[in-house]
C-alpha cells in the first residue's frame, strides 16, 4: 500500500483518536453493582426533622470531615409571622450538637432544613472545573477526583447551595459523595443510617420499586433554587417558601 503524505496527514488524527480509546479501555464490569442501573437522589421530609444533629455527626465520622467543615448540615429557620422574606436562620456548628431550645410562647414558626449536596443532574460545579476533576457519575452522583483537583475553588464559588469547601489539609475541593462507598455496596448513606426519624431517605430514581415514586406522586415536593435549573436531586417535602 502506497501511503502518500496527503493520506498520512488525514490518517494521523484518526489514528490518535483510535489510540485514545485503546488507552481508555472498556468500562470495568463491577461484579454486583452496575452504574447504569441507578440514578441516586435523596428525599428530605421536613416535618420529620427534629434537629438532633445525628446526620451531621454521622457524616463527619463516616467521611473524616474536618472540624468546622460540613458535607451536610442543618439550618433552623424562624419565620416571624408574615415576614417570609427575612427568615432568621441559625446553624450552630452545622447543627452538629443540636439547637438551643425554644420556649412555647415564642412568636412565629420554626422548622429544620437539613442541607447537603443536591447531586444536580446539570451541575454548575462540574461545568466550571478547568481540569475535569469533578464530574457526575453515570449513576448520578457528583464526585471530586482529589488526585486531579488542583484546589482552584472555582467549583466552591459555582455551587449555588454552598455545598463545597476546600479541605484545609489536602488543599483540594471536598464535598458530599452521597456515601458513594456505601451505596455501591447496597448500604444507605451514613446520614440516612443515623437519622432517627426517617427524615432523610436515600432514593434510587431508576429503581421502579423504590418508595420515592409513591411519595413523589402523593406529596408536595420541591428542590432548592429551582430557578437555577441545576437539576437538583435532593427533594424536600413540605418545604417552606422562606427557605433559600
Amino acid at each position: 500500500m502506497n501511503i502518500t503524505r496527503r493520506h498520512m496527514l488525514i490518517l494521523l488524527p484518526a489514528a490518535a483518536m483510535a489510540w485514545e480509546s485503546v488507552l481508555a479501555g472498556t468500562p470495568e464490569d463491577a461484579p454486583n453493582y452496575t452504574m447504569s442501573e441507578h440514578w441516586w437522589s435523596m428525599l428530605i421530609d421536613i416535618p420529620r426533622c427534629i434537629g438532633c444533629g445525628n446526620c451531621v455527626r454521622a457524616c463527619q465520622a463516616e467521611n473524616d470531615v474536618p472540624d468546622g467543615f460540613f458535607r451536610t448540615w442543618i439550618e433552623r429557620y424562624h419565620v416571624d409571622d408574615w415576614n417570609m422574606a427575612n427568615p432568621q436562620v441559625i446553624s450552630p456548628d452545622g447543627g452538629k450538637e443540636g439547637f438551643p431550645s425554644v420556649a412555647e410562647d415564642d412568636k412565629g414558626k420554626y422548622f429544620f432544613v437539613p442541607k447537603l449536596c443536591n447531586h444536580c443532574a446539570d451541575s454548575p460545579c462540574t461545568q466550571v472545573c478547568p481540569v475535569g476533576a469533578t464530574f457526575i457519575t453515570p449513576d448520578g452522583v457528583v464526585l471530586v477526583d482529589q488526585k486531579y483537583c488542583m484546589g482552584c475553588a472555582y467549583c466552591v464559588q459555582a455551587c449555588p447551595y454552598g455545598c463545597r469547601y476546600i479541605h484545609p489539609q489536602k488543599r483540594v475541593a471536598d464535598k458530599c459523595t452521597l456515601c458513594y462507598h456505601r451505596i455501591t455496596k447496597g448500604l444507605t448513606t451514613a446520614c440516612c443510617e443515623a437519622c432517627p426519624t426517617g427524615a432523610r431517605q436515600l432514593a434510587d430514581l431508576k429503581n421502579p420499586n423504590d418508595p420515592i415514586h409513591a411519595f413523589l406522586k402523593t406529596h408536595s415536593v420541591q428542590v432548592l433554587k429551582p430557578q437555577m435549573a441545576t437539576g437538583a436531586k435532593v427533594f424536600y417535602n413540605d418545604l417552606d417558601g422562606s427557605v433559600r
Binding site: E62, G132, L143, D145, K147, Y148, Y180, H181
Partner: peptide, 15 residues
C-alpha cells in the same frame, strides 16, 4: 474525567 476515580472513591473505608 478520570474514570478510575469512581472506583477509588467507592473503595473508601466504612465507619
Amino acid at each position: 474525567y478520570r474514570g478510575a476515580a469512581i472506583a477509588e472513591i467507592a473503595d473508601r473505608p466504612l465507619h
